[in-house]
Design a binder for these strands. Sequence first.
DNA 1: AATCCGGGGGA
DNA 2: TCCCCAGGATT
Length: 345
Amino acid sequence: MTPASADFPALRRALLTWFDARGRDLPWRAGPEGRRDPYRVWVSEVLLQQTQVVRGRVYFERFLTAFPTVEALAAAPVEAVLKAWEGCGYYARARNLHRAAGTVAREGWPQDYAGWRALPGVGPYTAAAISSLAHGEARAVNDGNVRRVLARLWGERQPTEPWVQARADGLLDPARPGAWNEAVMDLGATVCIPKAPKCPECPVAAWCVARASGDPAGFPAPKVRAAVREVRAVALLIGDPERAVLERRGGSLLGGLMGLPTEEVRAGEAEADALARLSARLGAVVMGELGEVTHTMTHRRVRLTVYAAAGGPAPVPVAAEALSRLDHKALRLHRRRAESLFALG
DNA sequence: AATCCGGGGGA
DNA sequence: TCCCCAGGATT
């Protein structure tokens, strides 16, 4: 039952036949198999890192409209690139994509796996995807779909990265590497899904150890995740939702994005002390509390108390800047407060 | 090998 | 709520 090398040709035929009939029709799959437009493939692959396809589609159209070519992307200021990425998360992807576009515009397109892998933001997965899809290179992708599909085929509950890559390399169809990669990912996204996999629809069910075990959803075992950290912070809204004082965030968390001036409430510190630190830093006067918003990211839960304030730096138009969801929530408090005051009056 | 980096879909 | 998503960079 375990997929043996001797079975690979039949297994490949079964999956590729299914793919040719049932593969997803996606906007970045334009052009002949193995010769896809490298720019569209590249943008889509970066956009889809840890982002679901239904969501990626929207951002793909938005991004390609704003930056139709790699030259246009390279020529744009990074702030414009972040604006197009606004709300999509993992903003280092946008910064790296912009930086790499400069390299490509200057030096030309990478021609193989190693060339792609050298660009910032292009790791093993993305380099394998682009080189197989756009150049026809025999490189096997290893993503969340591949990991799950192969763990189930082989009945492996704890697949390590090297384990998955080795199986993916061996199973890759050398004649149609790009289509093969897309086929495995489509299978993982539409049939071999995390919960309640649709084994009766699966073209390779006959080879699947997990299916034979009677509990395919038990493969692979769930990953243990770090606990979500609780964070408290205070922010100042100087101005209104249309024009407000904004600061550019540095570091890795929301780096490059603009946001309301914010200070974290340190462990053991009173919120009032953090607020005093914040208003002193800006040279602003706190008028009153606007309310509280909570925002959950992958590994932290932020509780942000927002205060109306006056003075400090000059407000800027908000619409032109790229802000995180957290800051958009904070800005909305202003309107809510105005509405409640109106209702009371 | 572990952690961090956003945000949302779906159960 | 919890799990996962066409991962990459850093340590």
